[in-house]
Amino acid sequence: MANITLGGNPIQTVGNLPQAGTKAPDFKLTATDLSDKSLSDFEGSRLVLNIFPSIDTGTCAQSVRTFNEKASALENTKVLCISKDLPFAMARFCGAEGLDNVTNLSDYKTGDFGKSYGLTIANSALETLLSRCIVVIDTDGTILHTEQVGEIADEPNYEAALNALS
Rank of each mutant, 00 (worst) to 15 (best):
N3C: 09
L6W: 12
L6D: 04
G8T: 05
D26F: 13
F27T: 05
F27H: 00
L29C: 05
L29D: 02
S35H: 05
K37M: 12
F42M: 06
S45M: 11
L47E: 04
L47S: 07
S54F: 08
T57M: 07
A61R: 07
S63G: 12
V64M: 11
R65T: 00
F67Y: 14
F67V: 09
N68E: 09
K70Q: 15
S72H: 01
L74P: 01
E75Q: 15
N76A: 09
L80V: 06
S83M: 11
K84S: 14
D85K: 09
L86D: 11
P87E: 00
R92M: 10
F93L: 11
G98W: 08
L105M: 13
D107M: 06
Y108Q: 14
K109H: 13
K109A: 14
T110M: 05
D112Q: 14
D112V: 11
G118H: 07
L119K: 00
N123G: 08
S124A: 10
S124V: 04
E127W: 05
C133L: 08
V135H: 10
T139E: 15
G141P: 00
T142D: 10
I143L: 11
H145Q: 08
E147P: 04
G150C: 03
G150A: 14
P156C: 13
P156H: 07
A160K: 13
L165V: 06
